[in-house]
Structure formats: structure tokens, C-alpha cells
Amino acid sequence: MTAARLPETDLTPVLRTDFSDDDSWRELLGEVDDGWVAVQADRSHEGLSTAELLALVPEGSRYPVLVVADAETFSGEERTLLVVDVADEPGRTFRAVPDACRSAVGNLAIANLGFDDYLRSVDESGVHRITERHLRAHAELEAALQHRPALVPHQAMLALSTTARRRRSSAWRFRQMM
């Protein structure tokens, strides 16, 4: 069987390459599918290596990474996902627990952080996890949003793009100081 090409989309693909546990797959999707990913559960991708998956990425793709649910995902207790660099240095990888994966995909998509930042953030087992600082910041943001009037979609996108520009600028200045 010939492996299906990956979609031409702005959303990050979440690829299933192991089909051993449908229940775990459904649970995993509940943790990572936040509407900002393109879920692919195509049996033609079963068992494919990182290099083989990269060969399926369309020319000029806009997504920075692939997220892969592989055999290690379903055999491990934490169900870590393989995050594969597509944009900067294709083929580099790190693993992430599902809640940290959502955050990483979002930050990489808006260029708030780069792949190198995540490579530096993995723990001694090679896994990226959400830090206590991140959890506190997220809780503060959620609390602040409870007291703001709701934004209509175009206002929300404008606020997001403005914030992303500021963060990229801040991240660039920070890296220049190092």
C-alpha cells in the first residue's frame, strides 16, 4: 500500500502510525485535538519512520511540526507523542506528554517559541512537560479572561496576532542578549 500524502493545511497534522489500541487513540484525541490540529488516522501511515513521514509532507507546507502517535505512544504509561520538526531542521524530534504537546504546537505555530527552545526544555527522560510556572500563568490568564467581555472572532484573531508579534519581538530581543 502506498502511504497517503499529508494534507495541505495550516493546521498541524496529528498522525497515527500505530493502530494497536483504538480506545487509547480516542482518549488521546480528547487530550490533543483542540480544533487546531488536522487529525490523520490513515492505515497507510502504519509503522512509518520519521524520514518516511517527512517525505509525505507537501512542498511548501505551512505547519512547523508533525505530531505522531506511534508505538511508543501507546506502549508508554504517559502516552508521549513524537513531535517532528518540519520547518527548521526537518527530522529533529522530541517527545511530549499530551497536555504539553498542545502548548508546544500552539507556540510553534505562532513562532512564540522555536524548536530549539523545546529541545532545551526536555527533561532527563527526553520528554517535554508543562512546568509549574506555565500552569500558574495559564490559570492567571483564564482568571483574567473571566472578567473580560467576550471578543467577536475577528477581534480575537487580531488580539492573538498582535500578541504573537510582541512575543516574537520579545523573544528575538531576549536571544540577542544571550
Rank of each mutant, 00 (worst) to 15 (best):
L141Y: 14
G114S: 11
P98N: 10
S103C: 01
E77H: 08
F19T: 00
L135V: 01
L48K: 09
L151V: 00
L56I: 06
F94A: 03
A109S: 15
V65S: 08
S44W: 05
D70Q: 06
E77A: 14
T12Y: 05
M1S: 11
G126F: 03
L66E: 10
V86Q: 09
T73P: 02
A69Q: 10
L56K: 08
M178I: 09
T93V: 15
R175C: 00
A87H: 13
R165I: 09
T50C: 13
A137W: 13
E8W: 05
T163C: 01
M177V: 08
S24L: 10
F115N: 07
A38N: 10
L53I: 13
A150V: 14
V152K: 04
P58I: 03
V152C: 05
A38T: 07
P13I: 04
L48P: 09
A55S: 14
V127N: 01
P58K: 06
R95W: 06
E52N: 12
L158Y: 07
D70W: 07
T9S: 15
S24D: 06
R167H: 13
E78K: 10
E46K: 10
V32H: 02
D116N: 10
A111E: 14
L119Y: 04
R102G: 15
R129D: 03
E140S: 06
P90M: 05
R133Y: 07
Y118T: 03
T2N: 02
F174R: 14
A144L: 13
R136V: 15
R167A: 13
G126N: 04
G114H: 07
S103Q: 03
L28A: 07
R102I: 02
F94M: 03
R26K: 10
Q146D: 15
L48N: 11
L56P: 10
A3P: 04
S170M: 03
H134Q: 15
T162I: 01
M157K: 04
L81V: 08
W25S: 00
V68S: 05
R16Q: 14
Q40H: 12
E142M: 11
V65F: 11
A104R: 03
E77T: 11
D23Q: 09
L66G: 06
P153C: 01
D88K: 12
P90F: 06
R129K: 11
D99C: 00
T80C: 13
Q176E: 06
R129L: 00
Y118L: 13
S44D: 05
L119W: 08
D42Q: 05
R120F: 10
P98M: 09
Y63I: 01
A4V: 10
R120V: 01
L81T: 05
V68A: 03
R62I: 02
F174D: 09
A3F: 01
V37Q: 10
T17S: 12
R43I: 07
L29P: 05
A96D: 08
Q155K: 08
V65E: 02
T162L: 14
L81K: 06
P13Y: 06
L113E: 11
